[in-house]
Deep mutational scan, measured.
Amino acid sequence: KELVLALYDYQEKSPREVTMKKGDILTLLNSTNKDWWKVEVNGRQGFVPAAYVKKL
């Protein structure tokens, strides 16, 4: 599985998104969309802005 690092805090704005804190390590589930990547964090799956994370 591929991991990404949260570069910034992000507060979810819809049920399809997830909240993350700067420094969190997230599991990358899908990065086919250039703007929104699907990740898993704390057992929850959802989208975060691709610009807010970096592949490890």
Rank of each mutant, 00 (worst) to 15 (best):
P49W: 03
T19I: 03
N30T: 08
S31A: 13
G43M: 07
R44A: 07
V41P: 00
A6L: 02
K1H: 14
Y52F: 15
P15F: 10
Q11I: 15
P49R: 03
F47H: 06
K34H: 12
K21C: 10
V39N: 00
M20E: 00
K34D: 12
R44S: 06
T19G: 10
N30A: 11
R44N: 07
R44Q: 09
Y52L: 14
L7Y: 04
G46M: 05
V48Y: 00
T19V: 03
L5S: 05
V41W: 08
L26N: 01
D9C: 05
A51E: 12
A6Q: 01
P49H: 02
M20H: 01
Q11D: 14
A50G: 05
Y8C: 13
N33A: 09
Q45P: 07
D35A: 11
A51R: 13
D24L: 05
Y8V: 11
Q11H: 14
D24Y: 05
E40C: 10
L56T: 07
T27K: 09
D35S: 12
K54D: 10
K54N: 07
W36P: 00
V41H: 15
R16K: 12
G43Q: 06
V41D: 06
N30P: 03
K13F: 05
L28E: 01
Y8L: 12
Y8S: 09
W36Q: 03
G46F: 06
A6M: 02
V48R: 00
K22E: 07
V4P: 00
V48I: 09
K13T: 14
R16L: 15
F47K: 03
R44H: 08
T27M: 10
N33K: 07
L29V: 12
P15L: 12
K13N: 10
Y52P: 01
R44Y: 06
R44T: 08
T27P: 15
F47T: 04
K38H: 14
N30E: 15
L7H: 04
K54Q: 15
N33M: 09
N30C: 11
Y52V: 09
V53A: 03
N33W: 07
L3A: 07
A50E: 04
K54L: 13
D9L: 02
L3N: 07
V48T: 02
A50L: 02
V18W: 05
E40H: 05
L28W: 01
L56W: 08
E40N: 05
W37Y: 08
Y10E: 01
N30V: 09
A51C: 14
E17R: 04
P49C: 04
W36A: 02
K13Y: 05
A6N: 01
N33T: 07
L5K: 08
W37F: 08
L56R: 03
K54C: 13
L26Q: 01
T19W: 04
D9P: 06
N42T: 07
G23S: 03
T27C: 10
Q45G: 06
A6W: 02
T32C: 14
E17G: 13
G43P: 03
Q45T: 14
T32H: 13
Y8P: 00
T19C: 06
E40F: 06
T32Y: 10
R16H: 13
D35Y: 15
K13M: 14
V41S: 14
Q45V: 15
W37A: 05
K38C: 13
V53W: 01
A50S: 14
I25Q: 05
V53M: 06
S14D: 12
I25D: 01
A51V: 10
V48F: 00
L7P: 00
V4M: 05
L26K: 00
Y10H: 04
L28N: 01
N33S: 11
K55I: 15
E40D: 09
T19A: 08
W37V: 08
K55W: 09
A51Y: 11
L3I: 10
E12H: 09
W37I: 06
Q11C: 10
Y8D: 08
G46V: 04
K22M: 09
Q45R: 12
S14E: 09
W36H: 03
L26E: 00
G23P: 00
K55D: 06
D24P: 00
Y8I: 11
D24W: 12
Y8K: 12
Y52N: 08
T32E: 14
V18A: 05
N30G: 08
L28M: 03
K22Q: 11
V39C: 06
L29D: 02
R16C: 14
W36E: 04
A50K: 05
K54E: 15
V53G: 01
P15W: 11
Y52D: 06
V39I: 08
K34A: 14
V18P: 01
K21E: 07
M20D: 00
L5D: 01
E17M: 06
E2Q: 13
G23L: 03
G46Q: 02
S14G: 13
T19R: 06
K22C: 07
S31M: 10
A51I: 11
L5P: 00
D35E: 13
V4N: 01
V53Q: 00
L29A: 03
V48E: 00
Y8F: 13
W36T: 02
L29Q: 04
Y10A: 01
T27E: 14
K38W: 15
V41T: 14
V41G: 14
T27D: 07
K21I: 10
E12P: 14
A6C: 12
K1E: 12
R16D: 13
N42C: 10
L3K: 11
V4E: 00
A50D: 02
A51P: 08
L26R: 01
I25C: 06
G46P: 00
F47N: 04
K55L: 15
T19P: 08
L3Y: 14
Q11A: 13
K55V: 14
E40L: 08
K54M: 14
G23Q: 02
R44W: 04
E40A: 09
L28H: 01
L3R: 11
M20T: 04
P15I: 12
A6V: 11
K13H: 10
W36R: 03
K1S: 12
W37N: 02
P15H: 13
P49I: 02
E12A: 13
K34T: 12
Q45D: 08
G46W: 03
N33Y: 08
K34Y: 08
T19E: 04
N30S: 13
Y8N: 09
L26G: 12
Y10L: 01
R16E: 13
G43V: 03
T32S: 15
G23A: 03
V18Y: 03
L7W: 04
S14N: 14
E12C: 11
D35K: 13
S14T: 12
K38T: 09
R16P: 06
L7T: 05
Q45H: 09
K1V: 15
K38Q: 13
L5A: 07
E12D: 05
P49D: 02
D9K: 03
V53L: 15
E2A: 11
N33D: 15
L3H: 11
K22V: 08
L56D: 04
D24I: 04
D24R: 03
I25H: 06
I25E: 04
L3C: 11
N42H: 12
Q11P: 07
R44M: 08
D35F: 15
A6E: 00
K54Y: 10
W36V: 03
V18S: 02
R44G: 04
K1Q: 13
D9I: 02
K34I: 10
E40Y: 06
L29T: 05
K34Q: 14
T27S: 09
W37D: 01
K55M: 14
G23M: 03
G23V: 01
P15Y: 11
K22W: 04
M20S: 01
T27N: 10
L5T: 08
K38D: 04
M20F: 11
E17S: 07
V48C: 05
K1N: 12
Y10W: 11
K34F: 09
V41Q: 12
K1G: 13
Y10F: 08
K55Q: 10
L29F: 04
K54H: 11
V41A: 13
E17D: 06
P15G: 10
I25S: 03
L7F: 04
G23C: 08
K1Y: 14
K22T: 08
W36C: 06
L28I: 05
D35V: 12
V39P: 00
N33F: 09
